[in-house]
Amino acid sequence: MPSIESLNQIGLNHYLALSAIIFSFGMIGVLMRKNVIVMLMSIELMLNAVNLSFIAFSNFTANLNGQIMVFFVMTIAAAEAGVGLAIAVMIYKKFKEINIRYFEQLRG
């Protein structure tokens, strides 16, 4: 199957590059977006980019540990998302505001 052929040509570096690109998107999202929820999502994106590289490494170095790690990371990411959302919700309930620029009291 040609598709598999072509998939075989896709090497570690491709995965890593993709992961880097996703990671960068995540970073840019964190840096640029004002909405807290979107920022949260961007962070998830970054974590998933990392997961991608873990998987890739695991696959290409035949090291299963990497895949175990992905499980860990996914769990942690879920927890993180949970905590993050909880904080976001609490804040929204309190201030009716989820624009990150609203929270600049602590400074100097």
Partner: peptide, 17 residues
């Protein structure tokens, strides 16, 4: 709240790195 929020965002950001 602000502190928690900042800490969370930046901490997660750094964790990802």
């Amino acid at each position: 709240k602000e502190a928690a929020f900042k800490y969370f965002l930046l901490g997660s950001f750094a964790s990802a790195i």
